[in-house]
């Protein structure tokens, strides 16, 4: 997509690679958009932006906390800074996001790439498994998880326009594109990607694509509704409650710790509004190096894990109906 914005369906593209071009296009029309990176701009395809706008591209070296503080200062002067690094390296910035961004009530966009285990071969130090939980716990920051490369330009534009700070999670592994130009994207509004009647699968990130494949593979035995819950905070409660009401069973799927991320957010919504049999698919331990496909299977977030969770939650629904 060097010049056009959207890739053909099914093409394998790394979400992180789509970030730089999307940001550059947006930044050409908005001189207030600036980047501060902890030496990972290249990994997000930002070299061209840096060449075209060297005065708006700050590489602060391997110094994530300084990156966050600088972004807070730039925001105080009226800029819209994007802090760019890997999600795995943002954990150390929590206190800086809390005070320099949060307490100062400034609007900063934080981009954590290589989400989950998508940087699989690099091993657990490079896996981001806690970022959604961390940012979800902080007030005044939206948490957005990009599902495929075609969602990137929409998500970046929406994040830039959003009135609060935003955490934007991207991924490294090239995976098939499954949304297109016409797929809507609005922060806080989940997309029902496929309608179904037996079970609702709420996913985020590239696992939405994996769940769509699972839904295909389980047809016609199971009618599966798949929701792309790209905004984990503020979560789209009405869409989740409505779908759970129709299917009576919910599975959440995320490339993140099972604690504090999408599964927890959905569980909170359902427990308070519409208690529903539910299973969470996510990580409960650190993962290891390997190929992406190997690592997600070993980590308990592969297709078989999703299928098992669907079977279990459908059985629980049936059990509940018998009581």
């Amino acid at each position: 997509m060097d010049n056009g914005k959207y890739y053909p369906l099914g093409e394998k593209v790394a979400i992180r690679s789509a970030f730089g071009p999307a940001f550059l296009e947006l930044a050409r029309d908005n001189r207030k958009l600036v980047v501060v990176t902890a030496d990972l701009g290249g990994s997000l395809n930002l070299v061209k932006f840096g060449e075209e706008y060297p005065d708006r591209y700050f590489n602060c070296g391997v110094a994530e906390t300084n990156m966050i503080g600088i972004c807070a200062g730039l925001a105080i002067t009226g800029y819209t800074p994007f802090a760019v690094t890997f999600g795995s390296f943002l954990g150390r910035t929590m206190d800086h996001v809390r005070q320099s961004v949060g307490h100062n009530r400034v609007n900063v966009k934080i981009v954590g790439s290589h989400g989950g285990v998508s940087n699989a071969p690099d091993g657990p130090s490079a896996h981001a498994l806690e970022d959604l939980a961390m940012f979800r716990a902080l007030p005044d920051i939206a948490v957005v998880v990009v599902a495929d490369a075609n969602q990137v330009p929409k998500a970046v534009a929406a994040a830039a326009d959003h009135p609060t700070s935003v955490y934007l999670r991207l991924y490294r592994e090239p995976l098939p594109v499954f949304t297109d130009e016409t797929t809507p994207f609005e922060i806080g509004k989940a997309n029902v990607m496929r309608a179904g009647t037996d079970v609702t699968v709420v996913a985020c990130g590239p696992h939405v694509g994996l769940c769509l494949e699972v839904a295909d593979e389980m047809t016609p035995e199971r009618s599966i509704e798949v929701i792309d819950c790209h905004t984990v905070k503020p979560i789209d409660a009405p869409t989740i409650i409505s779908s759970a009401g129709r299917t009576g069973a919910v599975v959440t799927v995320e490339d993140h710790s099972i604690y504090g991320g999408l599964g927890s957010a959905v569980a909170e919504v359902l427990a308070e509004n519409r208690p529903t049999p539910m299973k969470r698919v996510g990580l409960t331990a650190f993962a290891t190096s390997g190929k992406y496909a190997e690592v997600i299977d070993a980590a308990g977030i592969g297709k078989d894990d999703v299928k098992r969770a669907i079977a279990a939650v459908v059985a629980a629904k049936a059990e509940g109906a018998r009581r």
Binding site: I70, G73, A75, Q99
Partner: peptide, 20 residues
């Protein structure tokens, strides 16, 4: 001008303001 208390953050924010 800024919130502080958790130490080691003000200079980074000052740099961001100076850059802006």
């Amino acid at each position: 001008e800024i919130s502080s208390g958790s130490l080691g953050q003000g200079l980074s924010v000052g740099i961001g303001i100076a850059l802006g």
